Deep mutational scan, measured.
Amino acid sequence: MQFKLIINGKTLKGEITIEAVDAAEAEKFFKQYANDNGIDGEWTYDDATKTFTVTE
């Protein structure tokens, strides 16, 4: 399945899409990606669109 991350950071904005087995695997990848890029904010997930959003 495809999952999307929308980044609304103070210094980094954009979107990335990955293939993952389930939402838990996608969330783990996205949170590591955000951590690696210094993004720390509020997370939301929309199951209907398979979209995670992080907002700083």
Results as ranks from 00 to 15, higher is better:
Phe29Ile: 12
Phe30Trp: 01
Leu12Gly: 05
Asp47Gly: 06
Gln2Ser: 12
Gln32Cys: 01
Gly41Met: 01
Ile6Lys: 15
Glu27Val: 06
Leu5Asp: 00
Gly9Met: 09
Glu15Phe: 01
Glu19His: 12
Leu5His: 00
Lys4Trp: 09
Ile39Asn: 03
Ala20Gly: 11
Gly9Leu: 09
Asn37Trp: 06
Lys50Ala: 13
Glu42His: 07
Gln32Ala: 06
Ala23Thr: 12
Ala23Cys: 03
Gly41Ile: 01
Thr49Lys: 04
Phe29Tyr: 03
Thr49His: 12
Gly38Phe: 15
Asp46His: 06
Ile6Thr: 04
Gln2Asn: 02
Lys10His: 06
Ile6His: 13
Val54Asn: 07
Thr53Phe: 15
Ile7Val: 12
Thr17Phe: 06
Ala26Tyr: 00
Asp22Ala: 11
Thr44Leu: 05
Phe30Cys: 02
Phe29Lys: 09
Asp22Trp: 08
Phe30Gly: 11
Ala20Val: 04
Leu5Ile: 02
Asn37Ser: 07
Thr44Arg: 13
Phe30Ala: 15
Ala24Lys: 11
Val54Met: 09
Ile18Gly: 08
Tyr33Gly: 01
Gly9Asn: 09
Asp40Phe: 11
Asn37Lys: 09
Met1Gln: 08
Ile18Asp: 02
Thr51Asp: 07
Ala20Ile: 09
Thr17Arg: 06
Ala23Glu: 08
Thr44Met: 03
Gly41Gln: 01
Gly9Asp: 13
Val54Ala: 14
Thr17Gln: 11
Ala48Gly: 10
Ile16Cys: 03
Leu5Thr: 02
Lys50Gln: 09
Thr51Gln: 13
Asn37Val: 09
Asn8Asp: 12
Phe3Arg: 00
Asp36Ile: 14
Ile39Gly: 01
Thr55Ile: 14
Glu25Cys: 02
Asn8Ile: 08
Val54Thr: 12
Ile39Gln: 12
Lys10Pro: 08
Phe30Ser: 15
Thr49Asp: 05
Glu56Phe: 05
Thr17Gly: 04
Val54Trp: 01
Glu42Ile: 05
Glu42Tyr: 07
Tyr45Val: 07
Ile16Val: 15
Glu25Asp: 11
Trp43Leu: 10
Gln32Phe: 12
Ala26Val: 11
Glu56Val: 05
Gln2Pro: 14
Leu12Ala: 03
Gln2Trp: 14
Lys50Asn: 09
Phe29Ala: 08
Lys28Ile: 08
Thr55Phe: 05
Lys28Arg: 05
Lys4Val: 13
Phe3His: 02
Phe52Cys: 01
Thr55Leu: 06
Lys50Pro: 02
Thr49Trp: 14
Asn8Pro: 03
Lys10Met: 08
Ile16Phe: 06
Ala48Cys: 04
Glu42Thr: 05
Glu25Gly: 11
Ala23Arg: 15
Asp22Tyr: 03
Thr17Tyr: 04
Thr11Ser: 15
Gly38Arg: 07
Phe3Asn: 00
Ile39Trp: 06
Thr44His: 04
Gly38His: 05
Gln2Ile: 09
Glu27Met: 09
Leu12Ile: 14
Glu25His: 11
Thr53Val: 04
Ile18Cys: 02
Ala23Met: 12
Ile6Phe: 11
Glu27Arg: 09
Lys13Leu: 14
Ile6Val: 12
Lys10Phe: 05
Gly9Val: 11
Ala26Arg: 00
Asn37Gln: 07
Ile18Lys: 14
Asp46Cys: 03
Ile18Pro: 00
Glu56Thr: 03
Ala34Arg: 02
Lys4Gln: 09
Thr53Gly: 07
Leu5Ala: 02
Leu12Tyr: 08
Lys4Ala: 07
Gln32Ile: 13
Lys4Pro: 00
Ala24Pro: 15
Gln2Tyr: 08
Phe30Glu: 00
Asp22Ile: 13
Thr44Lys: 14
Ala24Ser: 15
Met1Trp: 11
Lys13Ser: 13
Gly41Val: 01
Lys50Glu: 06
Ile18Gln: 08
Thr11Met: 07
Asp22Ser: 06
Glu15Lys: 03
Asn8Ala: 08
Leu12Asn: 11
Asp46Leu: 14
Ala24Gly: 12
Ala34Val: 05
Glu56Cys: 03
Lys4Glu: 05
Asn8Arg: 11
Phe30Tyr: 04
Gly14Trp: 07
Asp22Thr: 03
Ala48Thr: 07
Asp47Val: 14
Glu19Gln: 13
Leu5Val: 11
Asp22Cys: 02
Glu42Lys: 14
Phe29Cys: 04
Phe29Val: 04
Asp46Tyr: 10
Lys28Ala: 09
Val54Arg: 00
Thr11Asp: 15
Asp47Ala: 10
Lys10Ser: 13
Lys31Met: 15
Asp47Tyr: 04
Asp46Ser: 11
Glu15Asp: 03
Gln32Lys: 03
Lys13Gln: 14
Asp46Val: 11
Thr11Phe: 13
Asn8His: 07
Thr53Gln: 11
Thr51His: 10
Asp22Met: 10
Asp36Trp: 13
Glu15Met: 02
Val54Pro: 00
Asp36Tyr: 07
Tyr33Phe: 12
Gly41Tyr: 01
Asp40Asn: 03
Lys10Asp: 04
Ala48Gln: 13
Asn35Ala: 12
Ala20Met: 07
Thr51Tyr: 11
Glu15Cys: 03
Val21Glu: 08
Val21Trp: 10
Lys50Asp: 05
Thr44Tyr: 03
Asp36Cys: 03
Tyr45Leu: 06
Lys13Tyr: 11
Gly38Trp: 14
Trp43Asp: 00
Asp22His: 06
Leu12Glu: 08
Phe30Val: 04
Ile18Glu: 13
Val21Ala: 05
Ala23Leu: 06
Lys50Met: 03
Ala48Glu: 14
Lys28Ser: 15
Leu12Trp: 04
Lys10Ala: 09
Thr55Pro: 01
Asp36Glu: 02
Ala48Met: 13
Ile16Ser: 05
Phe29Gly: 10
Thr44Asn: 10
Ala26Cys: 01
Ile18Trp: 04
Met1Cys: 02
Gly41Asn: 00
Thr49Phe: 04
Gln32Asp: 11
Asn37Glu: 09
Glu56Asn: 04
Gln32Asn: 07
Lys4Tyr: 14
Lys13Met: 13
Asp22Pro: 04
Lys31Pro: 00
Asp46Glu: 12
Phe3Asp: 00
Glu27Gln: 07
Glu25Phe: 09
Ile16Met: 10
Gly14Phe: 02
Phe3Gly: 00
Thr11Ile: 10
